[in-house]
């Protein structure tokens, strides 16, 4: 049986992704309203609950003469609109390989989770894939700093509307409908800046389209230069037991919680692996009893 022989034309799929608080749902509502004006059936699916807690947020918008599934099957998003760089990467494979359009804000929102490893010399665990290499891999689409474009207009918060301007160039709806729906949706006092932001998004696409991809790639941020690799060190926690009076300050203040008072009420390291060698215990000890040393690990000579 051939599952693809539908009578009605297949629906168009726009996947909008970002981080809680960025306005993913608002952007998808604008799109849904525009689709409705065209007399199309629209399904818009999102998941509430964790959205406000800094987690990833996504909204599936599907429209056409008839829409069944509320979610977009993997590999079938005609447009992937990412309001945050790494969220775009997370959903990249949801995009259609033949003719899908990737629109990504290069803005990076780094979650606390990325700072978990605090070892000597650690770097943040934010995705290392930079716009230049990803756009080269995808081969088409747009990566832009919408926040900067919006900030240049005097209102950083209008970045969403810049992205709507870009999105409007990727869909075939009349531009007047976009303008009207945006005017109906944004607060009256922000109308002018949002109007400008929408046009700025469109203009940006006009300008960018004229430039060959290879040229465009050069202007995109590349992978950040690898941070200088620090020589490996051994951390040594030393305590002069006679000087320690068991005041507990180091134990309570240790950021890695790897100190304790032993049964003689002398501070000791409980987990040498957890200690990062930050030296806060050394600096806070009122009795100068603690010394933290970082001893370079010497490579054996061949």
């Amino acid at each position: 049986m051939d599952g693809s022989s539908e009578k009605a034309p297949a629906p168009r799929n726009v996947l909008i992704v970002g981080v809680g608080g960025q306005g993913v749902i608002l952007v998808s509502k604008v799109l849904a309203l525009i689709c409705q004006r065209q007399g199309l059936e629209v399904k818009q699916s999102e998941v509430h609950g964790m959205a406000k807690r800094g987690g990833g947020v996504f909204s599936h918008v599907r429209f056409g003469p008839k829409v069944w599934s509320p979610t977009i099957p993997q590999g079938e998003a005609d447009v992937l609109l990412a309001m945050e760089w790494s969220e775009g990467l997370r959903w990249l494979n949801h995009m259609r390989r033949d003719g899908g359009t990737f629109i990504a804000d290069t803005r990076r929102i780094i979650p606390p989770f990325a700072f978990r490893s605090r070892k000597h010399g650690s770097q943040s665990a934010y995705s290392s894939q930079a716009p230049r290499e990803v756009m080269e891999m995808v081969g088409s689409g747009y990566a832009l700093d919408a926040s900067k474009i919006a900030a240049d207009l005097g209102e950083k918060r209008a970045a969403n509307t810049v992205l709507l301007g870009v999105l409007s160039m990727a869909l075939e709806f009349p531009v007047e409908d976009w303008r009207e729906v945006i005017a109906e949706t944004v607060p009256a006092k922000a109308l002018e800046v949002n109007r400008l932001a929408f046009e700025a998004g469109r203009d940006w696409v006009e300008t960018t389209r004229a430039i060959p991809l290879a040229e465009r790639l050069k202007d995109l941020p590349g992978r950040e230069a690898e941070a200088e690799t620090l020589a490996p060190v051994d951390i040594r926690f030393e305590i002069t037991a006679e000087w320690c009076k068991g005041c507990d300050i180091c134990v309570k203040m240790c950021p890695e919680r790897c100190l304790r008072l032993n049964d003689r009420l002398v501070a000791e390291l409980t987990d040498a692996q957890a200690c990062t060698g930050c030296r806060i215990c050394e600096w806070l000890c009122p009795d100068f009893a603690i010394r933290v040393q970082r001893v370079p690990v010497l490579e054996p000579v061949a």
Binding site: K52, R53, G54, G56, P111, F113, S128, Q129
Partner: peptide
Amino acid sequence: GVLEAVAAPEPWAVTPTMRPPVLC
């Protein structure tokens, strides 16, 4: 065996950032 298997393209190799929900 109702639908035929369709060869899916090799997924793009991406390394997104883990982003679990957090306290505000």
